[in-house]
Design a protein around this nucleic acid. Structure first.
Length: 1032
RNA sequence: GGGCGGUUAGCUCAGUUGGUUAGAGCGUCUGGUUUACACCCAGAAGGUCACAGGUUCGAGUCCCGUACCGCCCACCA
């Protein structure tokens, strides 16, 4: 019986794997079979406690609904899917919860920007409700898109549990969290300087601020001293880059003890100069000199006088406004900087704010929310900051109070959203006290008494940053001046009393309230329902306008998605979750807060492990982001290469300490030419192909005429490699399927029937077991690239290039066929199951075709048992023996290729070798014939080369290839001479090594190894020498 | 200013606790219609492991320094 008879449909297997078809088919199949769903209740056959599977849960780092996913997200989700699929196959009860994040600032900004671009409307034009409605629409659109992208990548999430950080389930958790914090006194109201975007009229976070160096000035301004006494200075001079802020000054400060402070700075600087590298010394030295000069040029004396005056209660006159303000002594004024005196503007500078608090200074806000100056600025009210600055400087000059102006480059903060300068602006703000909470999150990652920490972070080096950040224990500002988010569940009530509140809310344990010390107003927090304005009779309740920081809700993600605060079966089963897989820039903002919130709410850590993966960079080494335009849509890669290729490529590149650099280019859909992706064209909706001059569209196409153009795919070498690998696997499976059609032996166990005596069988089984062990270990410790390399090399170099090639002849031999099939199927089955977590579609396709022959295989590879390493099959001796065969085969092929033997010409060869080796290799003769078209004619210790043959000295053997008329004697001689020269080099270095201290000092085993190696080299040299003589 | 990572073949990257002659893919070159696969097969060329010092019998690997690239955090009257 020959393969490929007409009774079987395997001949229909296409030569090329078709990713699109497989993706569509198996996505649907998995969905229909509900393989990725976890059903908590209503299950017909509830497994007994003993049979209940161990739980393993991952919650997705919810992508922002600001836009579609790029390859960075693709990486993140691929790694999660690999992990969850492996766990599922290993028999865990798995749950991967998908979802998206409302991303307050970013999403509102995107929608607002669009509103303005398209309709020239601002949010104030349409109002809170209408804006929020629009953002919801945006969210619906992008959530759908994101979920589609995740599904397209093959993510095995339980889609029925998709969550959104603003949905009811999450909202409930947020309210409970806030209420609990408020009740325990961990939430308070304070002042905080925010980055005010005067264009968008919103506060933006530090992360959304970028600094740009602009040309500016350093102005020296004289503040006249009031009631000058004998020996006192008439002016205090301060230097500033922002003269207009003097309108909000409430003091001028000088250091209380400038001499000591200055000496300390000088001392520190001197110490540093000694330890610092040479090239930095010069700069520091001149800095030191400049500071030391202050002691002699009168600066210090003046500061000392001013310090005295400050202590005596001197006042200065605020220029332009003519307001008396105190001269104060405060350590914030550094005698080594500027003039040594500093103006204090508590409402517009974070440091000044602290000074203001310390010295009980008034805080004068001079800004309106739109960036113009307010009534506190006197005659400057109504001007923009820029206009005010010019006028202030002019007026100061006119009054003779401007001492000088220096030119200087200034780092100016700009809003990333509107690209306009940021104004620091002091605002009322809600805070969470971090002391205890932060400590609990630190404790979780610190190992004590040699025990592993509660939460392990991979790679370990990230633990430090996490701890350092938390150790600062800076209170967490949780309010945002936005409309998109969870509204802070606080209602203000004026002029009431505790008794009144008690009677209004009696028997309500979901209401709690506190009185503001300053204003006497009451703040009422409601855990569940929104309070109506007349909830307290005779008073009007007003809800807080601000919403909560996005991280406040995402901090709850691990338990809110599982149903907290309710004690759901899911929460009981899956919390703490297994691992959190995310990227490094949110380790603090998100991960740390999840730990502290999780512990605060549930008493338990939110996850056992955290894995931080690398960042995807473009060819310029820049991270992918929407704003830069270099974010590549995974779907466009999938369209070109398939989801499996995308996933394999990304996992293959996920190494421990290197970011992933991807060079991607456009492929012209018209001529197929490659168009380089540049910084310029990567944000354009359409591009003209430089070769065929035709236009194609990109992912940014919006206009109908652009969208009508064909899209240029994103191509990259790494994806090609991965696609080729998938295709290789596909074809290996195709070969196996074409050769197993007759009577299958039924489902075999992992080991039985495999104890064959053939070298190649035992070799591939040993290799398969080793790879199973190594891949599993690598994936379990998040070494994805290692795992991929093991699989790639095994599948391609060992299974395909050797085993499949060798097994061919046996498949045609009735007596050997069955054993060959058994091993072949066993190894393929292990291989596809090992690969399934990475390349789910192609492996499912193969699996389902295998099932046609082996019907008792699992219904889907997604729930098939993950291979377990059979330790008994691992045999290093066999692997060594096989390596001898490989060495010889390679040598024969090399002789053929380098001597230009025509491919069809059969050659003969003999091998001088020991009895053991001969016994080993003789049974392999058939493979030399099939794999190198070379016929073995002799094996033995005493063989000698024929005159017209090529000699290749190998490890413990010499290969003689009979070349007859093909021989080129001078060329052979040259080859041998070159070989001898090379060997001489090695021999010489070995001999000198063995003649040195090495022999005494190195471990005996290493020395012995070197001796053997030298002997081997000498033998080889001798063989080459002999062969040279033979040639005459 | 503090912290972290990187520098290995033309390109993109591996390289386990120090131990024979430093690996892969792509690209290049040679040859190939071998019945799984041209998204393939066989073979070859290509490296002062950034630079300088040290420890060691032995350094890509450990230590010190230098240069360059990248990231994070803080600060900047």
């Amino acid at each position: 019986m020959t393969p490929n008879n007409e009774t079987n449909n395997v001949t229909e297997i296409p030569k090329q794997y078709d990713p699109a078809a497989a993706q569509e088919k198996w996505t649907k199949f998995w969905d229909e079979k509900k393989l990725f769903r976890y059903e908590a209740e209503g299950q017909e056959q509830k497994p007994s406690a003993a049979l209940e599977k161990k739980p393993f849960c991952i919650v997705i780092p919810p992508p922002n609904v600001t836009g579609a996913l790029h390859l960075g997200h693709a990486l993140n989700n691929t790694l999660q899917d690999i992990t969850i699929r492996m766990k599922r196959m290993q028999g865990y009860d798995t749950l991967w919860i998908p979802g998206v994040d409302h991303a307050g600032i970013a999403t509102q900004a995107v929608v607002e920007r669009r509103l303005f671009e398209e309709e020239k409307l601002t949010r104030r034009d349409i109002g809170r409700e209408a804006l929020v409605e629009r953002i919801w629409k945006w969210k619906e659109k992008y959530q759908e898109r994101i979920i589609e992208q995740l599904k397209g990548m093959g993510c095995s999430c339980d889609w029925s549990r998709t969550r959104f950080t603003l949905d009811e389930v999450c909202a409930k958790a947020v309210r409970h969290f806030f209420f609990k914090l408020f009740q325990e006194g961990k939430i308070y109201r304070g002042k905080r300087l925010v980055n005010w975007d005067t264009h968008l009229q919103t506060a933006v976070s530090d992360d959304e601020v970028f600094h740009e160096t602009v040309a500016g000035n350093f102005w020296y301004i004289k503040y006249p001293v009031m009631d000058v006494k004998q020996g006192e200075a008439a002016f205090v001079v301060v230097a500033t880059t922002r003269p207009e802020t003097l309108l909000g000054d409430t003091a001028v400060a000088v250091h209380p003890d400038p001499e000591t402070a200055l000496n300390k700075v000088i001392g520190d600087l001197k110490k540093r100069i000694e330890t610092v590298p040479e090239k930095e010394k010069a700069d520091l030295q001149s800095e030191l000199e400049a500071i030391e000069k202050r002691k002699t040029d009168g600066t210090l004396d003046r500061l000392k006088t001013l310090a005295q005056m400050a202590k005596a209660g001197s006042k200065v006159l605020l220029p332009l406004l003519g307001k008396p303000i105190p001269l104060i002594a405060d350590v914030w004024a550094k005698p080594e900087k500027g003039t040594g005196c500093v103006k204090i503007t508590p409402a517009h500078d974070p440091n000044d704010y602290e000074v203001g608090k310390r010295n009980a200074l008034p805080m004068v806000n001079i800004l309106n929310k739109n960036g113009t100056l307010n009534e506190n600025a006197g005659k400057y009210a109504g001007l923009t900051v820029k206009q005010a600055r010019e006028k202030v400087v002019a007026d100061l000059e006119a009054e003779g109070l401007l001492m000088k102006a220096e030119e200087r480059m200034i780092e100016l903060a700009h809003s990333d959203r509107s690209k306009t300068p940021i104004e620091p602006f002091l605002n009322d703000q809600w805070f969470v006290k971090m002391d205890e909470l932060a400590q609990s999150a630190i404790d979780s990652v610190v190992s004590e008494g040699g025990l592993p920490p509660e939460i392990r972070i991979f790679p370990e080096r990230y633990t430090k940053g996490y701890i350092d950040w938390l150790s600062e224990k800076r209170d967490w500002p949780i309010g945002r001046q936005l409309w998109w988010g969870h509204r802070i569940p606080i209602w203000y009530c004026k002029d009431t009393s505790e008794a009144e509140l008690q009677s209004s809310f009696k028997n309500r344990n979901d209401i709690t309230y506190q009185q503001d010390e300053e204003s006497g107003d009451w703040r009422i927090c409601s855990q569940t329902e929104d309070l109506s304005p007349d909830a307290v009779s005779g008073h009007k309740l007003v809800q807080e306008e601000d919403v909560l920081d996005t991280w406040f809700s995402s901090a709850l993600w691990t338990h809110s998605t599982l149903g907290w605060p309710d004690d759901t079966p899911e929460l009981q089963k899956f919390y703490p979750t297994g691992v959190l897989i995310t990227n490094r820039d949110i380790l603090t903002l998100w991960v740390a807060r999840m730990v502290l919130a999780g512990k605060f709410n549930t008493g338990k850590k939110p996850f056992n492990e955290v894995y931080i993966h690398p960042k995807i960079l473009d060819k310029y080494g820049e991270g992918m982001s929407k704003s830069k335009g270099n974010g590549v849509d995974p779907i466009s890669v999938i369209a070109e290469f398939g989801a499996d290729a995308l996933r394999f490529a990304l996992a293959y590149l996920t190494t421990e300490n290197q970011d992933i650099r991807l060079t991607l280019d456009f492929e012209c859909p018209h001529c197929g030419g490659s168009v380089e992706q540049t910084k310029k064209n990567r944000t354009q909706p359409k591009i003209q192909c430089p070769k065929c001059k035709k236009d194609f569209r990109t992912q940014w196409a919006e206009l109908p005429e652009d969208k009508a153009l064909p899209e240029g795919a994103m191509v990259g070498e790494r994806f090609e490699v991965a696609r080729n690998f998938c295709n290789k696997l596909w074809n290996a499976a195709r070969f196996v399927l074409m050769n197993i059609q007759e009577e299958p032996q039924g489902r075999r166990s992992e080991t039985c029937g495999l104890a064959g005596s053939l070298l190649e069988d035992r070799w591939i089984l040993s290799r398969s077991a080793t790879v199973t062990r190594d891949v599993t270990a690598a994936l379990e410790s998040y070494r994805y690239a290692d795992a991929m390399r093991f699989l790639y090399d095994f599948a391609w170099d060992e299974f395909c290039s050797f085993y499949v090639e060798m097994v061919k002849s046996r498949l045609f031999d009735e007596s050997q066929r069955q054993q060959a099939q058994t091993v072949l199927v066993h190894v393929l089955s292990s291989l596809v199951r090992l690969l399934h977590p990475v390349v789910p579609f192609v492996t499912e396709e193969i699996w389902q075709r295998l099932r046609e022959f082996y019907p008792d295989l699992s219904v889907s590879i997604a729930v098939a048992p993950y291979p377990v390493c059979n330790e008994n099959a691992i045999n290093p001796e066999i692997e060594k023996q096989f390596a001898v065969f490989q060495e010889l085969l390679r040598a024969v092929r090399d002789v053929r290729a380098s001597r230009n033997v025509p491919p069809k010409t059969e050659i003969t060869f003999s091998v001088r070798c020991g009895e053991q080796t001969a016994k080993l290799l003789k049974p392999m003769e058939t493979y030399f014939l099939s794999m190198a078209r070379a016929r073995a004619v002799g094996w033995g210790e005493t063989l000698k080369p024929a005159t017209l043959s090529s000699t290749v000295p190998l490890t413990g053997m010499d290969l003689y290839v009979d070349l007859s008329e093909l021989i080129d004697i001078p060329a052979e001689r040259a080859k041998l001479e070159k070989e001898i020269a090379k060997l001489d080099g090695f021999i010489q270095s070995k001999e000198s090594k063995l003649g040195s201290d090495f022999v005494q000092k190195a471990p005996a085993a290493v020395v012995e190894k070197e001796r053997q190696s030298l002997t081997e080299l000498q033998n080889q040299r001798q063989s080459a020498e002999k062969a040279l003589h033979q040639l005459g």
